[in-house]
Amino acid sequence: MKPNLRPILLPIIAFVVLIAAWQFIVVAFEIPAFLLPSPSAILKAALRFGWPLLTVHTAATLETILLGFAISVVLSVPLGVMLASNKLASEAFYPLLVFTHAIPVIAIAPIVVVSVGTGLNARLIVVTLISFFPIMVSTATGILNAPKDMLDLGRTVGASKWQRIATIALPHAVPFMFNGFRIGIVGAVIGAVVGEFVSANSGLGYLVVRSTSDFDIPMAIAAVIILAVMSVTLYQLTAVVQTRVSPWAPQSEN
């Protein structure tokens, strides 16, 4: 085996072995499908459900994730900048924001549905509640982490405080922000599913709830697998965007 293929081949082999073991155990011990369905049963369930319908549900969830994530970014980046650059604002609002983040989102989701009604809005609020915090904190960290030397340089060339933030601290914070984006996007997937649990008639989260109430466990697991794949893909996608946006920054370890 070529050494450069190892990091790709090794996990694939491990994955195939695990799936095979799973299939073997389920078949050999005759485990009922509602307790633990076999991989082949999950695939069959997905096929039975039909890809077109599955695509519709996937698209619905993806819409919630991306919109909610976008709202988080739009809110959190300026908020992070403000917290990092204004001591008064940070002292006044930071504890409040920590408290907001400390609220178990799953507990607040049904309440959100009551106050804003079922529908996309409720789901977006849930997604934003989960993903705004890591983005805000990482933006603030990046701003505060700006090297003193560089800020001194800004002062010696006559840049005002906000000019120093805009031309030095903010670009410096971009890789930090992307760390937040990566955590935020995975949080957004969780938020979208929670949102769909409490208020949706489509989406993969809704599919999980509906399938389990029908004791169609293979179908529920199929939906969960799609969610996991989506989550990993979005996570990797932010890394790809990061290398495009800030090629100068050392890529952080995934």
């Binding site: 090297p147 030397d149 560089m150 001194d152 340089l153 010696t156």
Partner: peptide, 29 residues
């Protein structure tokens, strides 16, 4: 600020700007 310029112990270049961009950085202020 144009009258005085400083060279620091470390080069203190902005890593997201090219060499030309770094040289031109003070011009805007």
């Amino acid at each position: 600020f144009a009258r005085v310029a400083m060279v620091f112990q470390a080069p203190t270049l902005l890593p997201w700007k090219t060499v030309l961009g770094n040289v031109l950085y003070p011009v805007r202020f």
